[in-house]
Design a protein around this nucleic acid. Sequence first.
RNA 1: GGCGGCGUAGCCAAGUGGCUAAGGCAGAGGUCUGCAAAACCUUCAUUCAGCGGUUCAAAUCCGCUCGCCGCCUCCA
Length: 491
Amino acid sequence: MIRLYNTLTGKKEEFVPVTPGVMHMYACGVTVYDYSHVGHARGAVAFDVIQRYFRRRGYQVKYVRNFTDVDDKIINRAKEEGISPAAVAKKYIDAYQEDMKRLGVDRADVEPLATDHIREMIDVIKRLVEKGLAYPLNGDVYFRVKNFPEYGKLSKRNLDDMMAGARVEVDARKEYPLDFALWKASKPGEPAWDSPWGPGRPGWHIECTAMGFKHLGETFDIHAGGKDLIFPHHENEIAQSEGSSGKRFVNYWLHNGFVNINQEKMSKSLGNFFTIRDILDKYDAEIVRLFLLSTHYRSPIDFSDANLKDARAGLDRFYTMKEGVRNFLAGKKVPAVKPEEVIEAADRPLYEKIQNFGQTFEEAMDDDFNTALAIGILYDLVRDVNKYLAEIDQKNVQAAILLLTAARDAFDDVSRTLGIFLREPEEWFQGARLGESKVTLSVEQIERYIHERNEARARKDWAEADRIRKVLDEAGVALFDRAGGTVWKPK
RNA sequence: GGCGGCGUAGCCAAGUGGCUAAGGCAGAGGUCUGCAAAACCUUCAUUCAGCGGUUCAAAUCCGCUCGCCGCCUCCA
């Protein structure tokens, strides 16, 4: 049973799908006028794991994540760059897809563009006008907030509170200050579509209503986005959607916490942001992904060098274990014996723990997708496996093969759901880690040094062996003398 | 001003009524190693911002105080 925190009710609730066995989810994507920053990455990664998790739990998932490709900021950017708004959108959609691919975020099942749904938006607006929930005004159309009594139910504020706190000058033409635009008359030179109210373009909120309706239906299970979208975006979506359909729009609202820099929200307006690509030039994508998943998705997460380095150390630890298991199992066949016949009593609890690991993982994830807890129990098992490996010489070989094969499979299984720990150890140490390290020698040079050092070691010339170790150390290379030979890793 | 959230060890971070407060990083000691690293073992919060209250029982519920943050304007 999956329990999830619903912003609408302020509580964790049991997930009950609209259609048994099916999960329909809509996540607000990005407005494509610039490169995406790490804050965008957080939501994308969090909801990626959530949709993966529903699939793991057997749901037939339809996941929709849109692109907002018509907007003031896009128009401004187009003017700045001297290209069309459509070209701006295309450029940053491509960039976004590239960033997401690097972060291991799956493509959504549907990735709709606002501009492909103008017809549907106009239909919704027409319905709202017919029902008295919207009114045209000089080519614009506004939502009539006062006629939607439940306005404020998501963000938990009432109209008076909002009026009192209004920080923006209101357009005096509007019937009521909180009425918001569904449709905007276009100015000359701006993108425009024909409508019953004259040429114009959609307001921001209406696209999600139209695309949600079209791809997921008038009532669907989950709508997700960043906490900053609760008001006004999602509040307005509810008003438009429920106002026009007369039905409950969304059953569960999920909102991710912010990425902070020094306790402050990362945002464009504060200027304290890093683009995803900037960060991926400095840190391997898997580090960033693990970092983001190490904190519960609703909590704020502080983006800092120290925290990313923690994540890197965690990956080192995991891949070291994976390497140990893989090396032991290499070339060994799984024996056709029953585990209970060969695994000694002292190791039975560990074997059971491994067997139940998928279930333990699901208990963590069932509780509002607690990836932080899930990663915690995963490290717990890493230690157990390392301990077993340290004592492997005293183990029955058949027992060891069975137990470590089970461990490997258990890790692979949860890794696929989290989208981390999926590489081979070499890819991590000699690929990703080398790529971001400051190693100043070529692989060939390193290997030549190792060869020389091993010759020195063979003749017990420890001084020379240590000298070479030091040379490599200064070049950013760490050496490890293992039973099977010397291996190296970037420091 | 309105509304909402947060404050757990040196750092990161789970835990929201009841077994010894997960896990990681860093630190200390040890095993192993020619040296080293990794790994393993031991150690590392009688205590959960502070003060009161409810309860047989609270980090977990309630109240107040302090500190921090977010939304109310585009924002993931």
